[in-house]
């Protein structure tokens, strides 16, 4: 990694941490607080790309594990990873990497719909595939209940995907950061 790559990695790790500073938005219908933080892997993947994005989120998770209170609401420490939401957090680096690979591959013909599909695949399907069994294992409830409980986050995730598509496309237009593979 070049020095520029290292600085980019640090930037997106910090961006993910800063997204935790946003006050959690509470959905009027269901009343579940949603943090902006899960937009971190999506933004890192679509703007910084696969290697830098994945490394940025890996660095973020490392810092959280080391006890720095970077998660939304000032939480941190290994307790986060070992808690019910740990599966989601551990999947963030993978999600950022996968999103980055897919975006880089189709950079030349990347419509907004295609980008949204990539984000849903990497940022939602992939993370839930690990996150839901993790909840079930940690809280010792069965898979169906864990999946049903997680379904409350889906409206928020849909909003985040739309936001990230709008943001990432505008940023890449203003300041191209990716190279097509």
């Amino acid at each position: 990694m070049s020095t520029r790559d290292i600085v980019f990695v640090a930037l997106f790790a910090a961006l993910t941490a800063a997204l935790g500073l946003f006050p959690p938005v509470t959905l009027p219908m269901v009343g579940v607080p949603i943090t902006a933080q899960s937009m971190g892997p999506m933004l890192a993947g679509t703007i910084a790309g696969s290697r830098r994005g994945g490394a940025a989120l890996a660095l973020f998770v490392l810092l959280v594990c080391a006890g720095l209170p970077l998660m939304a609401g000032g939480r941190g420490g290994l307790g986060i990873v070992m808690g019910p939401g740990g599966g989601f957090v551990l999947m963030w680096p993978v999600a950022a990497f996968v999103i980055g690979v897919l975006v880089e591959r189709s950079l030349r013909s990347l419509s907004a719909w295609k980008e949204a599909l990539i984000l849903v695949l990497g940022g939602v399907v992939l993370t839930y595939a690990v996150g839901i069994p993790w909840i079930a294992a940690v809280a010792r409830i069965d898979l169906a209940k864990a999946a049903l409980g997680s379904a409350w986050f889906l409206p928020g995730d849909a909003a985040k995907v739309v936001l990230v598509v709008l943001i990432a496309r505008a940023v890449r237009r203003a300041y191209p950061t990716l190279q097509a593979r």
Binding site: M1, I6, V7, V9, A10, L11, A13, A14, L15, A17, A18, L21, A55, L59, F60, L63, L68, L70
Partner: peptide, 21 residues
């Protein structure tokens, strides 16, 4: 050493990001 640099930069970037925001 690169990881160390990235960690130091990240911790410095968080308040900078907040200020820019």
């Amino acid at each position: 050493a690169k990881v160390g640099l990235a960690i130091a930069l990240t911790l410095r970037f968080i308040p900078v990001l907040a200020a820019i925001a």
